[in-house]
């Protein structure tokens, strides 16, 4: 199953009684703010969950897998996520509960 924004809105409504409109606005604001901060070059740390970090990658030679043509992959900045200790602990034992 996949958790989406509407599930998070539903959960906020059930757990803390925000109405759906308030909850939706809040969820949108949270993810937009994280996105804006990252695009302004700030890293975002959510203790207990994880850190969104930025990495500057230099250009490197690559190949178009379809045509086999050599192309240069341009220098770029990418987002990486480092999960926090608490999140790591909560997911690692999944194997004991399912499959």
């Amino acid at each position: 199953m996949t958790l989406t924004k509407s599930d998070i809105v539903e959960n906020l409504n059930n757990e803390i009684g925000l109405n759906k409109r308030e909850a939706k606005e809040l969820v949108d604001m949270l993810f937009n703010d994280i996105k804006n901060l990252l695009s302004e070059g700030h890293e975002v740390k959510l203790s207990g969950f994880g850190n969104f970090q930025l990495r500057d990658k230099s250009s490197r030679p690559g190949r178009n897998p379809r045509t086999g043509e050599d192309v240069e992959i341009s220098a770029r900045r990418v987002v990486t996520f480092k999960s926090g200790q608490k999140l790591k602990e909560s997911v690692k034992t999944l194997t004991n509960e399912s499959d």
């Binding site: 958790l3 803390i16 925000l18 993810f31 909560s90 997911v91 999944l94």
Partner: peptide, 28 residues
């Protein structure tokens, strides 16, 4: 309320992953 909501969102996401669900946030 914002503080509580953000913590609730993070818990909800942690919970989803810990039961093997994926999370998909459009555009994010």
């Amino acid at each position: 309320d914002i503080e509580l909501a953000v913590k609730t969102i993070i818990n909800c996401m942690t919970q989803a992953l810990s039961t093997g669900d994926r999370i998909e946030i459009r555009g994010f």
